Amino acid sequence: MKKLICFLILTLGMFACSSAEEKASKNFEFTKEYTTQITVGGFVGVRDRTFKVGETFKGKNNGETIEIRIAEHSELNDKCPNSWCYQELLSVPKEYLKLKE
């Protein structure tokens, strides 16, 4: 009986964690152009990137800023820092983004 209760608690815990993660990540759309430097890795290193009005990214609201995912994770970023690492996340001031319904 004790093992069954432990199993149920672990199972419920896993479902609770995964659903919270999904709820935290929402779609945000740029309402104004935003230019910043991002790390692209390799020979290029750092470059300016302008996000256009209407571009949409998944992100999380952190209060003052919204952290958006600008690139998916890959094996290149597993053993950072190295010269091939690139930027996956970017913090953007709230006034440049709106929640896309």
Score class of each variant (00 low, 15 high):
1 M>G: 12
1 M>V: 05
3 K>G: 05
3 K>H: 08
7 F>H: 08
10 L>S: 14
11 T>A: 13
11 T>K: 09
11 T>I: 05
11 T>D: 06
12 L>C: 13
12 L>R: 01
13 G>R: 06
14 M>Q: 10
15 F>I: 01
16 A>P: 00
16 A>Q: 04
19 S>D: 05
19 S>H: 05
21 E>M: 10
21 E>L: 14
21 E>N: 10
22 E>P: 01
26 K>W: 00
28 F>G: 01
28 F>K: 01
30 F>H: 07
31 T>V: 13
32 K>G: 08
33 E>R: 14
34 Y>F: 12
34 Y>G: 02
35 T>Y: 08
35 T>R: 15
37 Q>P: 07
37 Q>A: 14
41 G>S: 08
41 G>E: 04
41 G>Q: 02
42 G>Y: 08
43 F>P: 06
44 V>T: 15
44 V>H: 11
44 V>F: 06
46 V>A: 10
47 R>E: 15
48 D>M: 13
50 T>D: 06
51 F>E: 01
51 F>H: 04
52 K>L: 06
52 K>R: 13
52 K>Q: 14
53 V>L: 07
54 G>A: 13
54 G>M: 11
55 E>S: 04
58 K>N: 14
58 K>A: 11
59 G>M: 05
60 K>F: 03
60 K>V: 15
61 N>S: 14
61 N>D: 15
62 N>E: 13
63 G>M: 06
63 G>T: 14
64 E>I: 12
65 T>A: 08
66 I>Q: 01
67 E>Q: 11
67 E>H: 02
68 I>L: 12
69 R>D: 09
71 A>H: 07
73 H>Y: 09
75 E>W: 05
75 E>Y: 07
76 L>T: 12
78 D>Y: 05
78 D>A: 07
79 K>A: 03
81 P>M: 08
83 S>I: 13
84 W>D: 11
87 Q>V: 07
87 Q>E: 15
87 Q>I: 09
89 L>N: 12
89 L>W: 12
92 V>M: 02
92 V>P: 00
93 P>L: 01
93 P>Y: 03
93 P>V: 02
95 E>M: 02
96 Y>S: 04
97 L>Y: 01
97 L>K: 02
101 E>M: 08
